[in-house]
Design a protein around this nucleic acid. Sequence first.
DNA 1: GTTAGCACTCCTGTATAATGAGTGCTAATC
DNA 2: GATTAGCACTCATTATACAGGAGTGCTAAC
Lengths: 354, 354
Amino acid sequence: MAKKKSQEEVPALAEREREILHAVVNSYITTAEPVGSRTVVKRFNIDLSAATVRNVMADLEELGYLQQVHTSSGRVPTDRGYRYYVSHLMHVQELTVGERRRIEREFSRKLDDVDGLLRHTSHLLALASHQAGIAEAPDASQTRVQRFELVPVGENRLAVLMVDNYGSVRSMMAQMSTPIETYQVEQLNNFLNQNFMGLEVGALADSVRIRLGEVLGEQRDLAQRALETLDLMPQRRENRLFLDGAVQLFEQPEFQRVEQAREVFGLLEEHDRLITLLRRAVVDGEGRTVFISRQSDNLGVEGICVVASSYNVDGKPAGLIGVLGPQRMPYPKLTALVEYTAGLVGRLLTKLGK
Amino acid sequence: MAKKKSQEEVPALAEREREILHAVVNSYITTAEPVGSRTVVKRFNIDLSAATVRNVMADLEELGYLQQVHTSSGRVPTDRGYRYYVSHLMHVQELTVGERRRIEREFSRKLDDVDGLLRHTSHLLALASHQAGIAEAPDASQTRVQRFELVPVGENRLAVLMVDNYGSVRSMMAQMSTPIETYQVEQLNNFLNQNFMGLEVGALADSVRIRLGEVLGEQRDLAQRALETLDLMPQRRENRLFLDGAVQLFEQPEFQRVEQAREVFGLLEEHDRLITLLRRAVVDGEGRTVFISRQSDNLGVEGICVVASSYNVDGKPAGLIGVLGPQRMPYPKLTALVEYTAGLVGRLLTKLGK
DNA sequence: GTTAGCACTCCTGTATAATGAGTGCTAATC
DNA sequence: GATTAGCACTCATTATACAGGAGTGCTAAC
């Protein structure tokens, strides 16, 4: 509600306009029905006549905040209307003590491994929001190498395992052109652990390239393979993204049209695109909880929106969690939910990462 | 077409009835429209009048193979009709040489790791069938322990890694009540590898229980944890099921109803139920490619069907692959596709598993 | 500047009729 | 006796018309 200067070049809205825009968005968010002037005065006991409200709404339409689905229907927020609402009008609705307690309790038994924690996070977000819940694994730049293990498998294949500081495992197979001697494997294994333990996973590829000269002499083949392998290692996390509760989206009226549902599920299947979307959402804002709905940003899928927040590990942003649903979402509640959960996840992960 | 005795107590159908049932199912499978008598004589140039066909169709309805969606509509196969079609009428439509080549080529570069192979399998099945593609990881009974690695993480947590004979990794965290000494870890690690290498993963839990007495003396806590951990290990495979192409189901007319789509996607989200379904499908049949559509077997989701086949590793059935879609599927083609792919996957996995 | 009033728009729902695909039945035909 | 042509009938689908209602824009009065 504070009258802060907006960062976009937005024509300043009069208090009454703001109030009515607020009412329209609120109403639409709960009912999913176009809202008319009468509804506004009744449901939000505004001390004006319907006719006046009509005039204001006509102004808001001209300014691009509202939109009529057809002449003589009620109005619906536009993209821009939503953005204004989220950044200038809505009050984040703090979670109640009970809700916080419940969330914390839900997390209390999930302290073991990162994947479980994140899987659980997405599940919880989905459950609490009735939207699709998303949780991303900590970024490679916030993850360190704990240990390498090389395990020969079969004739001439080598399983390369890497445990990170959270205890998560990345693994991949390296196909060798010739069988490998045990002593060679041990030597390389030691080399890797001595040189790269504690190193940021994201920086691994470059570091390997630099230090590899040291073993290149005798064991050209092995070293070469190792290089190729470790280059790819950072992306070899089994599950980079955890997703839950997508089915719930079918309940939302905006996804009753099969076409729309199809697009959304198509997006949810492609984790790479989904990550891009999340990232874009957070880059957009000040780093904390943000949301996205600019048409151009939706990667081709219209009518969806993401409420996301980055969680911090050791004080630095390490990954994203959030929910995805229709543009018409209960932002005040969801924002609080996502932020609070992000805080919690951050603390837990910080603890897990030593 | 062979007149083999059916295993169910099916009233024997006369040749003409069989022919017409065949035509009806075929037509319905391609058009998704109820098929009338005229359509049958026209599209399948049967040398009978529409009226005669009508009579036969009425008989087939009475016998429970066909069904009218309403009086005076065309007929649609029933559950039973589909089953009869699949087991007695359809001719498996062999893949063309070109199709086989393409599939083999698709697999030629994916020889490294099991997960990649299976992921690719589900992708390929989805692509070729226009349905959802499914691939299950090799069963624990067909998988052997290759190596254990224990990696301390943080203060008092222990990452337990297990590489199997395919090079796949299972991992989990064990939370210790007190910090662990390095020598203890090494000792346990050696113990595990010396005793359990080569053991069937499925039999791990029992074996561990028996031999654990040997180290129980000094290191009660560690041993106890190990037991609990290894008990769970077989199920700790990151991805037990690979799924792809579910979005394509939206194209099928039977999933235009959001209710139906919702149910299917609900099922696809729950991998456990999905595995049950696949298993049931294969238990139903003679072990090779089978399909399922008995209403009672669908786990509550009506109108879906699975074409699945188990792949063999070292001659023994090790896992399932298949496609899931509406009952109205091009079985002759899909059966061939799934069987051929299963054969291929089996050979590749046999090679991978040493 | 605000509001009451009114004509107008357009979605929604219901009723009615026309269309057409497909059936079941009967009588004629092979 | 099996097959078929013919015909009346059923029922989903589509089009059309019409009434009702929510909501608007505009104007004139407050």
